[in-house]
Structures are given as structure tokens and as C-alpha cells.
């Protein structure tokens, strides 16, 4: 009996580990390719740890490409989107729980129903709007159309809704106004939820691809995910070494953030879903 259980255990872990290797290997392969020299990169040998690791690709990237610009653009647009998206969501969610009127439900559904609007249907009109506002090739063009997010609103509202009434009542007895309640009740009690959502927004914003591709056409305005395209060259061949170095640079901040607070990220993901 004892032995049978152990075999089961071993098989269980073996299956999981096989899938895990498939799951993790491409990421390790990216890191390994970034520190390989061209001779080792372009071979048919499979070697995860390079024989002669080099930082050459990283130097090339900073010397020949606008990577510093791309990183600045990525940081700025990511922060812009995350701060404004969360702020708008917190204000709306707070308003909907603090005040009681007959139109609360209407406004709630007004926000929530946008979940089913596909990106493609808003893409062309929003592009036209941005070009009419003369914002193409600016941070604004990336940030502004991305502020409205039903999932962010929904997640934060679920948490604010959970605050017991007595907290607000205490506020109103002392004659405090709604701003006091927002600061001292909502922000202090939902700090964890709000920051978890903020981090999900940061990851989403950092990984944004399709929209920045449309509105950032000038090389120096690109974000890092869009800038990576410059390594693809169908005539001269793709520059895989420098690409892998850039991909590593773009990925490491996200991985570090994840290692630090993976539990919160997974929990927030379960209750809201990453937008992709």
C-alpha cells in the first residue's frame, strides 16, 4: 500500500515537472541566448549555459538602438495608464457605494457593459480621435484611450463594496465629508486591493503591443515592446543576439516584480483576469 502511494506521488511530480520544463524553458532560452556570442548562437548544438558568456549584445543594444528612449517611453506610458486607470476606477466605485440614488445601477452597468466591446471596434475611431487631437506619436495617444477599463473598475468596486457601513456612518456622525471617507476609509481599508490592481495595470501597460504599434510610428517615440520590431530585418536577417538582450531587459523588471509579490498578483488575477 505504502509503495503504491509513493509511485503515484512520483508519477504526479514527474508529469508536473515535464510540463513545467516546457513552461519555463523558453524563458531560460531567452536569457541564455542574450549572453551567447554569435558563434554559439547560430549552431545546431543545444546548450543552455553558454561556453563563453558575453555581455556584447547588451553593449550593442545601447550603442546602436534607441533603447534608452524606448524604456523611458514604456515607463511613462505604463505609469500614466496605471495611475489614471486606477484613480478613475476608485473614484467611480467609491461614488457608487457612498451615495444611494435610483441611477446607481444604470451607471454601474454603463461601466460594466463595456467589457464586451472588442478592442478592434474602438481601434479605428480612437485612432481618428487621437490624430484629430494631434496626439499621434506622443505618450498621450497611448495613455488616454486606455484609461477606461471595465475590469479595473469591477475589481475595485467589488472590494469597496465589501467595506461595512459602520465605517461611513462614523464619518458622517463626525460631520466629515465624502473626501474624508475616501481618504480614511477607502484608501486605508482597500490599500491591498488597490495596489494589487495597480500592479496588474502596470504589467498590462508594460506589455501593451497592438495600440502603441498603431499610434507610435516614429522610431524615437516607440515603447520597448514595439521597438523590438527593429531587430527584425527580412533582407539582412534578424539580429537575434541584440534582440534577446533587449527582450531580457524588457522582461526582467516584470519578473522581479513578480518574484517579490507573486501571491498578490495571482490572487488579483483570479478575481479580475489579466486583460492580455
Amino acid at each position: 500500500m505504502k509503495i503504491k502511494i509513493n509511485i503515484g506521488r512520483i508519477l504526479l511530480h514527474l508529469t508536473l515537472i515535464i510540463f513545467l520544463v516546457v513552461n519555463i524553458f523558453p524563458i531560460l532560452w531567452m536569457l541564455s541566448s542574450a549572453i551567447k556570442n554569435p558563434n554559439e548562437l547560430f549552431t545546431n548544438e543545444i546548450r543552455l549555459i553558454p561556453k563563453s558568456p558575453t555581455m556584447e549584445n547588451f553593449f550593442t543594444v545601447f550603442r546602436d538602438y534607441n533603447i534608452a528612449n524606448w524604456l523611458v517611453n514604456s515607463v511613462a506610458t505604463t505609469l500614466g495608464i496605471s495611475v489614471l486607470q486606477v484613480l478613475v476606477a476608485v473614484l467611480a466605485a467609491f461614488g457608487l457605494t457612498y451615495y444611494k440614488t435610483r441611477i446607481n445601477e444604470v451607471i454601474f452597468y454603463f461601466f460594466i457593459l463595456t467589457m464586451v466591446i472588442p478592442f478592434q471596434v474602438t481601434m479605428i475611431p480612437n485612432y481618428i480621435l487621437m490624430s484629430q487631437m494631434k496626439l499621434i506619436n506622443t505618450w498621450g495617444a497611448v495613455i488616454i484611450p486606455n484609461i477606461a477599463s471595465a475590469t479595473t473598475f469591477f475589481f475595485i468596486r467589488q472590494h469597496i463594496r465589501g467595506i461595512p457601513k459602520v465605517f461611513y456612518e462614523a464619518a458622517s456622525i463626525e460631520g466629515a465629508n465624502s473626501l474624508w471617507a475616501l481618504r480614511n476609509v477607502v484608501f486605508s481599508l482597500c490599500k491591498g486591493a488597490i495596489s494589487a490592481m495597480f500592479i496588474l495595470c502596470v504589467i498590462d501597460g508594460w506589455n501593451l503591443y497592438f495600440w502603441p504599434l498603431l499610434v507610435l510610428s516614429k522610431p524615437e517615440t516607440r515603447t520597448i515592446t514595439v521597438g523590438l520590431h527593429e531587430f527584425l530585418d527580412h533582407e539582412a536577417g534578424n539580429r537575434w543576439g541584440p534582440f534577446m538582450a533587449t527582450a531580457t531587459l524588457a522582461t526582467l523588471p516584470v519578473i522581479i516584480l513578480y518574484v517579490l509579490i507573486q501571491r498578490n498578483i495571482i490572487d488579483a488575477f483570479i478575481s479580475s483576469g489579466i486583460k492580455g
Binding site: 513552461n23 503591443y209 522582461t251 519578473i255 507573486q262 488575477f269
Partner: peptide, 13 residues
């Protein structure tokens, strides 16, 4: 944690 890692990486990368 390990299985979830690909989810947080940029799809384009």
C-alpha cells in the same frame, strides 16, 4: 508560481 510565469510576460516578446 512557476506555471503562472508566462502569463505576466509581454506576449509580443
Amino acid at each position: 508560481t512557476m506555471f503562472f510565469t508566462p502569463t505576466i510576460l509581454a506576449f509580443s516578446i
